[in-house]
Design a protein around this nucleic acid. Sequence first.
DNA 1: CCGATTTGACCAAA
DNA 2: TTTGGTCAAATCGG
Length: 284
Amino acid sequence: MNTSHEKAVQAILYGHSCAKRLKLQLDHPVADARSVSNYDLTKSIVHCFSDAISIFSDKSKSEDDVFSDLSSRDYPPPLHQRSHSKKRKNNSTNSSENWRHDSPDPNYYDGFLWRKYGQKTIKQSKHQRSYYRCSYNIDYACGAKKHEQKIKDNPPVYRTTYFGHHTCRINQNQDAGFTTIGDPVDNLENSRMIRFGQDLDQETIGLSVSVKDEKGIIKEETMDQCRGITGNDKDCQTVIKENHQSSPSGSYTPSSSGSEIDMFDSDLLVEDLDLWDRYDLYDF
DNA sequence: CCGATTTGACCAAA
DNA sequence: TTTGGTCAAATCGG
């Protein structure tokens, strides 16, 4: 069992290698259907850095706890048919909640278009929780939903919890640069975000965690509150709003500029590609 | 004008 | 009774 520090470093290194590979593909586009798409690479980079940050910032958990979470992802998560009733879900026992993602970036783009339908103040939580459902909920009877809530202030961590399954299959691929891939679940099952020629569990690098105990969110945040740090949840909403204004066809523009990639040393491109082969050995 | 968001009310599980 | 999840009217904004 590696230490959390090592895990985080591995995640960063892998993100670095993804960035390099992305640059390589941008510089030398190839029409190879087997290659990983630029979008997937971008998503992988975001995942890696987000989770590395989460690891470093998650002081409320022991190292083992952190990686117990990270390694306990359920693939595939259980299917969940949306209930139209208002009754509360039993978050701690049933399997309706199936995906969780922590990100320092409230503008994290998961490839889908969401419509906000509610916001609640959660007891013992100083941040409000926002409720979203798939924008194609009506058109395609898509039952996918998600919650989003700020759980830490410094550094900021936004937790998105996904429920249900995307049935909309909105694969608007008009945009040549990006393709709308399935939800995190579908992505794993169909698109195979990253290919290592290994088993699914090993080749997947989405570091989101399966949800086991919603109370943990409150617990973490309560500990954060003890630090006496204040935050502004409105920021989250604002950014999300901006995110929603982007085209549903997936015209996502990564927040980081392309110039940052220039910082990478092209000479390392080949040797660092080895990380792709080694990353499946990491115990995320 | 129309689609998206906000927000108070409502409902049901805990 | 409390609380989380959802509804839907009001409001906002392009």
